[in-house]
Design a protein around this nucleic acid. Sequence first.
DNA 1: AAATTTATTGCAATTAAGTTGCATTAACAA
DNA 2: TTGTTAATGCAACTTAATTGCAATAAATTT
Lengths: 126, 126
Amino acid sequence: MGIIRKTPSIEVLLTEFTRNGTAISAIELVKRLDGKLNKTTVYRVLDKLEDDGILHSFLDKKGIKWYAKCNSCTHDKHFDSHPHFQCLNCGKVDCVTVDVSIPKIPNREIVISQILIQGTCENCIN
Amino acid sequence: MGIIRKTPSIEVLLTEFTRNGTAISAIELVKRLDGKLNKTTVYRVLDKLEDDGILHSFLDKKGIKWYAKCNSCTHDKHFDSHPHFQCLNCGKVDCVTVDVSIPKIPNREIVISQILIQGTCENCIN
DNA sequence: AAATTTATTGCAATTAAGTTGCATTAACAA
DNA sequence: TTGTTAATGCAACTTAATTGCAATAAATTT
């Protein structure tokens, strides 16, 4: 893959992710960029950025799709197996930089694993 | 909560889960019981059975809702933090009885964690 | 056993995240 | 500057899941 054309849409979306380090849900981006970018475009650009290894995606407990900036992903391989933490109070989601080792399971081959942690974030804990 | 009335719907749905030990998706149950039970009823009974601590639910990577029989859940507390394994080949999903310890995260309180593992199951590995 | 209460069910309509088809626009290479 | 084709916008669609409401039927009361 690789980004083929540098368009305003791609820049606009990337800016949203560089603004702060947290994950952003697809619908949130659609709402946030309403009037600026079309819903379809948002979904398609996000998809492409994920293909390119720039963003990675995951679903929260409600099945809502979230995206976050990748650290060491390539378009070949996504290292998105770190846990994602969702605050039950403020809704914020971010990537947690701890290693969780998934134990081997007899007779099964593990391809991907996804860990979603929900609780209270550092801002809401007090 | 607790089941208030013992209706055929509840029995029909529970039978599906006792038939074999794997998890079943909500839509799969809706399809499987088409003509026998209404879609709305399926969703509502599943919801109630989860409330009662008889089933627990989780979402797969596509955002589809799955249910599985609980082992030691009560209507107060769901011990659903064991991983769920979904076969990328046959689609089967089941509960994995291994303990995955989620490390404590500084300044955050963990309430629930959900682990979804995808790969090849014991039937499809050969 | 009949009447009463109200949880449960079925049906149709709705919701909402995400997708698709297609005509139009605009990167960017030649 | 022209031609190619990726990217975009719009409208319509898809699909899992939910909601409102009237009808039905457990289970309790009389």
